[in-house]
């Protein structure tokens, strides 16, 4: 049986979309350092190329290029004629995470969970190790976010997709102009993710050349508390990672928090103060998150890379 590494230990700032029909990208795109790469069988693949893409992705997942890298594959939605074939092709090749689009309710996740179980049995994977990332793209999906996020132990994350959602809400999505129409949806899936203790990914930013607008949106979602964002071009990775990197001051303070907490534990105190402010468990947990993020971001603080 094939064991898989838990995705939860990895940084998850960036999820790079790669069209499953693009053979060159499937073999080279890992060099850009995205936290996750997502091979797409859905929207970026025309109906004519669905079979080609499915075969290419199946082969890519098995190739040595992707050995040891947890790859996400976005299959076609449950109600499409492609769903079953997509799922079998990727599970038989040992996919780590299946991204299911157009999720409207928890029943869909339970259905996928069951299907995965069957296929894992058929292809000899450790049962329950194929994880699920749910993409919500409708009003129902947003309203049912908590139920969706908690529908299966396979759930590793929840993501928002803006265009279909905006249409469902009788509005349009124009990222460069205004984010207010996404505010409720973002908050809803974030709460669901935190309740379920899974990752939470924001929408794509389609205009690759508009770095300024992209960074403006990244600042908004980082402040809200998102873990990361779906990306459509490798050029967006570095700006995103830089934006998510803690400042050297934040890292330095996090180290002091952790040190103070360790000291307090040694002398048996539950609550400690640092610079006159009380430090409790949530602050210590946040400090550990900051340090982990600093490590993956390569942030330098006085005394070298921590």
């Amino acid at each position: 049986m094939k064991a898989k590494k838990s995705p939860a230990e990895r940084p998850s700032r960036s999820m790079l979309f790669v069209p499953g029909s693009n053979a060159a990208w499937l073999s080279t795109v890992q060099v850009y350092g995205a936290d996750y790469v997502m091979f797409d069988l859905e929207d970026s693949v025309s109906v004519r190329e669905k079979d080609t893409a499915r075969l290419l992705v199946h082969e890519a997942l098995k190739s040595p290029v992707w050995a040891g890298v947890p790859v996400v594959v976005r299959v076609n939605a449950i109600n499409t004629p492609f769903f079953r074939d997509d799922l079998e092709a990727v599970v038989s090749a040992g996919v780590a995470i299946v991204r299911l689009p157009m999720v409207t309710d928890a029943q869909m996740i339970r259905h996928l969970d069951a299907e995965l179980g069957v296929l894992e049995g058929k292809y000899g994977s450790v049962p329950g190790t194929t994880r699920i990332l749910a993409a919500v793209e409708s009003a129902s999906g947003v309203v049912n976010a908590v139920a969706i996020a908690t529908a299966s132990p396979r759930m590793m994350g929840i993501a928002l997709a803006a265009y279909d959602y905006a249409m469902d809400m009788h509005t349009t999505h124009d990222a460069a102009a205004d984010e207010s129409q996404l505010f409720f949806a973002r908050c809803a899936i974030l709460h669901a993710a935190r309740v379920a203790k899974i990752h939470c990914y924001d929408v794509i930013y389609a205009d690759v050349n508009d770095t300024e607008g992209f960074l403006r949106e990244v600042a908004v979602i980082k402040k809200l508390g998102f873990d990361g964002k779906s990306l459509v071009n490798p050029r967006q990775i570095e700006p995103l990672h830089n934006a998510f990197a803690p400042t050297p001051e934040e890292v330095e303070r996090a180290h002091r928090v952790v040190a103070a907490a360790a000291e307090a534990e040694k002398v048996g105190m539950g609550v400690v103060a640092l610079d006159g402010k009380m430090i409790d468990a949530p602050i210590i947990a946040a400090a550990h998150r900051t340090i982990r993020l600093a490590q993956v971001s390569g942030v330098q603080v006085a005394g070298g890379v921590r």
């Binding site: 080279t28 060099v31 850009y32 050349n209 071009n233 490798p234 050029r235 570095e238």
Partner: peptide, 11 residues
């Protein structure tokens, strides 16, 4: 270039 691979190498 706007080719991401060239830009990665350049960086």
């Amino acid at each position: 270039t706007t080719n991401p691979r060239d830009l990665l190498i350049a960086r």
